[in-house]
Design a protein around this nucleic acid. Structure first.
Lengths: 115, 115
DNA sequence: CAGCATCCCTAGGGATACTG
DNA sequence: CAGTATCCCTAGGGATGCTG
């Protein structure tokens, strides 16, 4: 067993937000709770299996919470926890830097177009 | 071919800093240029192959530059580019959040101990 | 609707050895 | 010293289909 878990604290953060869709999910959750299907639509190219896995991991890291409504058809809403909200400035900074990089590289993001 | 490169700008950032050691490398480069062997010592558990790959990718993304000194034995120094320096506040915020997470989870990072 | 189950695949990461 | 070269391996991600 190792004496340390990380080389540097930055790794502890990347472990939480570093999955393929995680930061993007968090970003979309900033504006408020979203259901599974809403996230699916926003993350056009993600499969439901992967998305649900990433959401589960975010939940395990306690940055989002999952609320189940006992209805038919089923309804589930994901939202940021208080702890997750501490990530907010970080996520926004990540998004800002990404936007500048889009300008620099000429690449495009769906999100940018729809705003 | 896809019409878009990303769903959201956050992905453009994660593409740059999201590799296993990338953010950590950037973090250590904040204090100034470092040679390959210095980074190897700081990133205790990274292999030279991986580290050199990650550095090469950071270089391709134009956030670090590689300076070769024509000496024997060879000497190479890595440092942040001006563009890379625009990542600075972000990296520091990532580190801060990571530190708070270390406190919360009781995990440890080498870096924290040595300071 | 909100997901698991199953199967599959490759890219990222790692160990070890070797060179200019 | 600062890397490649080679081989290997698994974890993350993806396609498709099924269920409560």
């Amino acid at each position: 067993m190792k004496a340390y878990d990380y080389d540097c604290p930055v790794e502890a953060t990347l472990e939480v937000i570093g999955g393929k869709w995680k930061a993007t999910c968090l970003y979309y959750l900033i504006e408020g709770p979203k259901r599974f299907s809403e996230l699916m639509e926003l993350l056009e190219t993600a499969s439901s299996r992967i998305l649900s896995k990433q959401l589960k991991e975010l939940e395990e890291h306690e940055v989002i919470k999952r609320k189940i409504y006992s209805e038919v058809p089923p309804r589930v809403e994901y939202s940021l926890t208080d702890y997750g909200k501490t990530l907010l400035p970080l996520i926004e900074m990540i998004c800002d830097w990404g936007e500048r990089r889009l300008e620099k590289t000429g690449k495009k993001a769906i999100y940018n177009e729809s705003h």
